[in-house]
């Protein structure tokens, strides 16, 4: 997949984190950034493909894109 043209304000590298590590790491970062900031979450946990969109919708944040890389995915989330 082509990398989206998104410049994240913060990056969270949760590769290797056991479930629910990546989502909790993302939530922790979202807590600390301002509204409108974009956080990129690196995760190699398959569960993130359901956890992250569900939480983003629940919390009212925007999942802008999901980029598939060789050994992990990148989730771009904009804080509402």
């Amino acid at each position: 997949m082509t990398a989206p043209d998104i410049k994240p304000d913060e990056t969270v590298d949760a590769r290797g984190a056991a479930c629910p590590g990546p989502l909790m790491d993302l939530i922790g970062k979202i807590r600390s950034v301002d509204s409108g900031a974009v956080v990129a979450l690196y995760s190699d946990n398959d569960q993130s493909h359901t956890d992250v969109p569900e939480w983003a919708e629940e919390a009212g944040n925007d999942l802008l894109a999901v980029e598939e890389r060789d050994d992990h995915s990148v989730f771009y989330v904009e804080k509402a």
């Binding site: 479930c19 629910p20 909790m24 956890d51 569900e54 939480w55």
Partner: peptide, 10 residues
Amino acid sequence: YPIQRVHGNP
């Protein structure tokens, strides 16, 4: 609980 289930371990 912070995520969509009642414990981190599914």
